[in-house]
């Protein structure tokens, strides 16, 4: 190969190299290193050495009732939180997919919760939920209802987190689904109406199939986000009372950065990653199968 040919062949690689190196350092290396850590016991708080323990940390996960509880709580956020966000987001998107005066203003107002910093959201909701002075209980009392123990009840605390999460992230569902709805050509609606389809039939037989890829992606994104839910838990309940509102990512934080058991924390992170990958694969397969059909 001539000098020029070599240069043309390797020059692009040379340009890409810095990016590759950076990715290797900040992404691939930590990924591999943390996997290695997940196979070790490493109590850095006492300055102990790393000891290879194989899959023992993973086995411990399966018998750790606190971890299983956090997994259950994450499942609750997924099922109730993401479920409600999807239902509400779709409803609002359908409403906003019509022409009316002030539509832009209303759309922008709907988006506001998503634009607020999660830390601020957490702090605000902690005040809203205050048992004696919170505006939520105040309004309930005004309506003749009893105060709800939003933060001090082991049964209620996780649902308080879910409610705040719904408030914050429904706009995200709404905006993505609205974009999907607006991409559907008007001609299809007209054709359906000409064929005699009512609103329900248009929704179930036309909109849902056409929106399915968008729905799958937006739900998948929220599922991944839910596994990372931390800020709201940290700020609103700190996982309490007791362990009542601990989610996987919050328990992972406690294990890694308060108990400083780095090996166990790494195994928890990998377990979490495995679940997300499995869920993502299921969703993507369903999507592909539908596409192929």
């Amino acid at each position: 190969m001539s000098m020029k040919g070599k240069r043309e062949r390797y020059l692009p690689l040379f340009f890409v190299l810095p990016t590759v190196i950076i990715i290797l350092i900040i992404s691939i290396f930590p990924l591999i290193y943390s996997f290695w850590l997940s196979l070790c016991e490493w109590e850095i708080g006492i300055g102990a050495d790393r000891v290879f323990v194989g899959l023992r940390n993973y086995a411990r996960l399966l018998t750790d009732s606190r971890f299983l509880n956090s997994l259950m709580n994450t499942g609750r956020v997924l099922f109730f939180g993401v479920g409600a966000q999807f239902a509400l987001g779709l409803g609002v998107a359908l409403l906003l997919n019509r022409s009316f005066r002030g539509k832009n203003l209303v759309s922008t107002l709907f988006l506001l919760p998503m634009m607020v910093s999660p830390v601020v959201v957490g702090c605000i909701w902690r005040i809203i939920y205050h048992y004696r002075y919170g505006p939520l209980n105040y309004m309930l009392n005004m309506a003749g209802l009893s105060s709800v123990n939003w933060l001090g009840s082991t049964d209620m605390a996780i649902y308080s987190i879910i409610l705040a999460d719904i408030w914050e992230w429904t706009p995200f569902m709404m905006i993505v689904l609205l974009a999907g709805l607006q991409a559907i050509p008007d001609e299809l609606y007209e054709a359906a109406r000409v064929d005699g389809a009512n609103r329900w039939q248009i929704f179930t037989y036309m909109l849902v199939p056409l929106l399915r890829p968008v729905m799958i992606i937006v739900i998948l994104i929220r599922i991944m986000d839910t596994f990372k839910i931390f800020d709201l838990v940290f700020l609103i309940t700190f996982g309490g009372p007791g362990q009542a509102s601990e989610t996987v990512s919050f328990y992972n934080y406690l294990t890694g950065f308060r108990h400083f058991s780095m090996g166990y924390a790494s195994s928890m992170a990998y377990f979490q990653l495995a679940i997300i990958v499995i869920i993502a694969n299921i969703f993507l397969r369903v999507w592909r199968r539908r596409e192929e059909a």
Partner: peptide, 30 residues
């Protein structure tokens, strides 16, 4: 060393007992 974890675990189990999720002896044994 490990005080945070000792006391955190105790706090969780005491809460379990206080709210009646576990009998006191069971919570403390755990």
């Amino acid at each position: 060393p490990g005080t945070v974890e000792y006391l955190d675990t105790l706090g969780v189990e005491l809460t379990n007992a206080i709210v009646g999720a576990k009998e006191p002896q069971q919570a403390l044994d755990d």
